[in-house]
């Protein structure tokens, strides 16, 4: 694949409307960079939300599990799929009602921190994100 010298996205993903300051966290969550180039914009002007962070990744399509993690970074995060230089799909990320194995319970004596079991959290309301551990029933605010 030939990558344009100005790093215009040819085939890849745009993660947009990240709250300012969360781009670094998003890179960490997605373990970027991987193979293709990654361009990052931080504190850039946004027509809808004043300022935002934005990440463009060449040659990568995100998996559901990765989208669920990204959704936790803010309430307006969008992901666009670019093919042959054109946006073919754009979705606004939704935090699932139930998160399996994504969050860790902050309660050290929760059974999920002491037995081999996957965590399950239920989302309470919308933003800011609050989740209840279905095991120990403690509430976690992100």
């Amino acid at each position: 694949m030939t990558i344009p010298r100005d790093f215009r996205l040819v085939d890849g993903t745009v993660i947009d409307h990240l709250p300012v300051g969360t781009a670094a966290r998003a890179l960490e969550l997605l373990r970027l960079p991987r193979e293709g180039p990654v361009t990052i914009g931080m504190n850039v002007p946004s027509s809808r939300h004043d300022k935002k962070d934005i990440i463009r990744v060449e040659g990568m399509v995100l998996e559901k599990r990765e989208l669920d993690r990204l959704a936790l970074l803010g309430e307006h995060v969008t992901v666009s799929i670019v093919q042959a230089g054109k946006v073919v799909d754009k979705i606004r990320l939704e935090v699932p009602k139930r998160l399996r194995g994504i969050l860790t319970c902050t309660n050290p004596t929760c059974v999920t921190n002491n037995e081999p079991v996957q965590t399950v959290f239920e989302r309470l309301g919308r933003y800011p994100f609050r989740f209840r551990c279905t095991y120990c029933e403690r509430v976690l605010t992100l």
Partner: peptide, 10 residues
């Protein structure tokens, strides 16, 4: 009865 919260759910 168990010391870990959530043990009964598990």
């Amino acid at each position: 009865r168990h010391p870990n919260e959530g043990s009964a759910r598990l």
